[in-house]
C-alpha cells in the first residue's frame, strides 16, 4: 500500500513539474514519467492488457511524436 502511495505522489509531482518547466523537452520527459507510472498503476489494478498498451504507446510512441514536433518548432516557451 505504501508503494501505491509513493507512485501516486510521484505521478502527481511529475504532472505539476511538467507544467512548470520552461524548456519543453523537460516537460515531455516528465510526461513520459507520468505515463510510465500510470501503466504500473494499471498493472496493480489487474488490467495487464491496458498496462501493456499504455507502456508501449503512452511512454514510448507519444514521447517520440512530441520530440519530433518540438524539433520542428521551437524548444523554449517564452
Amino acid at each position: 500500500m505504501i508503494f501505491v502511495f509513493l507512485l501516486v505522489f510521484l505521478m502527481l509531482a511529475g504532472a505539476i513539474v511538467a507544467s512548470i518547466f520552461k524548456d519543453l523537452m523537460n516537460s515531455v520527459i516528465a510526461m513520459a514519467l507520468v505515463s510510465l507510472i500510470a501503466s504500473i498503476l494499471f498493472y496493480f489494478l489487474q488490467a495487464p492488457d491496458v498496462a501493456m498498451a499504455e507502456a508501449s504507446i503512452g511512454a514510448a510512441l507519444t514521447t517520440a511524436i512530441f520530440i519530433i514536433a518540438i524539433r520542428r518548432t521551437k524548444r523554449h516557451e517564452e
Binding site: D49, A51, A53, S56, A60, L61, A64
Partner: peptide, 17 residues
C-alpha cells in the same frame, strides 16, 4: 495471454522508429 493487436502493433511501430 495479455496482449493483442493494439499492443503488438505499437511495438512494431516502435521498432520502425
Amino acid at each position: 495471454t495479455p496482449g493483442g493487436g493494439f499492443q503488438g502493433g505499437a511495438i512494431i511501430a516502435s521498432g520502425f522508429l
